[in-house]
Design a protein around this nucleic acid. Structure first.
Lengths: 213, 213
DNA sequence: TGCGAACCGTACCGTACGGTACTGATCGGG
DNA sequence: CCCGATCAGTACCGTACGGTACGGTTCGCA
């Protein structure tokens, strides 16, 4: 048995030491943007050597990929599979989902990683973009899909294409807020309006796809 | 009278030579991303000297700002103030607007500039972000606002908050397509679905805010 | 106690970028 | 015909980054 297997891991087949290093790297990225994410800076912040960074992650891109995977592994979305779905609880679940979605998108780590992936979309063949899409959005998308499907099963929602319905829900909730935050709009001021925004969006969504009169 | 006034300009108080340089710079940015946007590269592509670049635009940031302003000045949105607005023409105008919006957002220059501004959002205090927001989105937003207001005046639409209604329209039309394209999803394949997407979004919007039974 | 692996800290190398300085050519006005 | 301004082309400088190499130290293990 290899020694590595016996060590505590951080959810991605990497040791906790490596996880701590990625944590510091994420902090650097959040605080200073991509420009601050230098190998020397990470090594200094994490009290490790550049040589170890290259041994563990290969090169800078591998390190960034590891950062995305590490962050995604921390934000496991627990879907509350609430049975006995009635109109009230469906609305409540949808509002909760909408708020969670806005909170996640407005999180500084999420914003920083999205900025990083978008900035490199031109040069790396959108490798990071696909990774973010797959490991971040896919998760929350599945949660929404399950919720919508449950609503349809309970006769509370009516739609043919689940993706189309989810797209409408996403658009009504997020609108152009995500882009505005990515462009640097202060996220702190906006968070206060999240609840109202989420409820409005869910109301609109239900009047589009709900069966209730 | 100054000599500069007598020269042909490119819409931003700069000479046509400078406009040609900015054109080449935009082309470099579109083709190779931010990494390809070097002063030496621009000078080579535009057959000018780096010294001229710095004389005209101050520094790299000034040049990027000029690029944004230059591009915005080219994409003037003509609002077809169609009088005699009935339900059919309102829908038609909304669909046209939705298609135009998707086309603009999917344009490679737009995507490249947005990627650039998002990538620098952390370091420059979102100066570029505000500029893009102000000179790009504000324009198309006003066109939509005028259309919505005309619809309300004609008794075809019903809403209290015009911004909220516009937000819903924007979200229904764009959903998360913009982000996916910014992250590198191939835009070519998506463009085929724009018409259908636009019509679906407008139908949903009308069933939310329309007065028609 | 001695061995070897892992690792920190740092020095180092090649490269590429932003920005400046200089030279020579072109061109319009007196 | 000459003067001054503008500009292309290039050489140059300081800096900072990605990636590598090396000496010294700790720690698990026999």
């Amino acid at each position: 048995m290899t020694a590595a297997i016996r060590e505590a891991d951080a959810g991605e087949g990497l040791t906790e030491r490596q996880g701590a290093v990625l944590e510091q790297a994420l902090r650097l990225l959040v605080d200073g943007g991509e420009k601050a994410l230098t190998t020397a800076g990470i090594a200094r912040a994490a009290n490790c050597s550049k040589e170890s960074l290259y041994k563990w992650f290969g090169d800078r891109d591998g390190l960034i990929s590891a950062m995305i995977g590490f962050q995604a592994s921390k934000v496991r979305t627990q879907d509350v599979a609430a049975r006995a779905l009635d109109a009230e609880s469906l609305r409540g679940n949808l509002v909760t989902f909408a708020k969670d979605l806005l909170e996640v998108l407005a999180g500084d780590v999420s914003l920083a990683l999205n900025r990083l992936a978008i900035g490199q979309a031109s040069r790396d063949g959108s490798k990071l973009g696909h990774m973010l899409q797959e490991r971040g959005r896919r998760q929350i998308g599945r949660r929404a899909a399950a919720l919508l499907e449950a609503g349809r099963k309970a006769g509370l929602l009516s739609f043919d294409d689940a993706d189309e319905a989810y797209g409408a829900l996403y658009g009504l909730v997020v609108s152009d807020w995500h882009l505005k935050m990515l462009l640097g709009e202060e996220a702190g001021e906006m968070k206060k309006g999240f609840s109202r925004k989420a409820e409005q969006a869910v109301s609109a969504f239900l009047s589009l796809y709900g069966t209730k009169r």
